[in-house]
Amino acid sequence: MMNLSMMLRPAIAGAFMMTAAAAQAGENGESPFGALVPGEGAEETYVHCAACHSEMLVAQQGLTRERWADLIEWMVDEQGMNPIEEPDYTLVLDYLAEHYNTDRPNFPRN
């Protein structure tokens, strides 16, 4: 089984990098949140997650609410991510659990 460190290695390697496509998305009429599906909490999720890695890394995951919470805690404790304060924390966690859960309803197909 792959450990959390191995799962996030691509995110760590790409820390502080944002793609040109994500930066230009709002200008082209696309979602300003890149690969993230629209919904309550999408903006907060994009702001907190894309600060260190591509939003595509988020969109490719399929985790339970508890695993998302554990992953956020790990990023804060081990990777130096700034803690997400309320009410953003609940918005982000609710958004991730709804849109990127184990059934992966919004897994990017392209």
Rank of each mutant, 00 (worst) to 15 (best):
E55Q: 06
E78T: 14
L4P: 02
Y95K: 09
L93W: 10
P32V: 00
M17K: 14
R104T: 15
Q24D: 10
Q79K: 08
V76H: 07
R104D: 11
L8P: 02
W74K: 13
F107Y: 15
G62Y: 04
A97E: 08
M81W: 10
M75Y: 01
E66C: 09
A50E: 06
A13H: 00
E55K: 03
F33H: 10
C49T: 01
E85S: 10
Y95S: 09
T45R: 02
E98H: 08
L93E: 05
M2W: 12
M7F: 09
A59P: 01
Q60L: 14
E44V: 02
F33M: 06
M75N: 11
A20S: 13
A20E: 11
E27R: 10
I84T: 05
Q79H: 03
R65Q: 13
G29F: 12
V58L: 09
N28E: 13
Q24P: 04
V58H: 05
E78S: 14
M17V: 08
R104P: 10
D70Y: 15
E43T: 00
D77N: 14
Q60G: 13
A13W: 00
A59L: 06
V92Y: 05
D77I: 04
Y89E: 08
P108F: 14
A97L: 10
A25P: 09
R65W: 14
F16T: 00
R109D: 12
Y89D: 11
M1F: 12
E40W: 00
G34H: 01
D103H: 14
L91E: 14
A35W: 08
A22W: 03
E78D: 06
Q61F: 13
H99L: 06
A69W: 06
M75V: 07
R67D: 11
D77Y: 11
V37E: 13
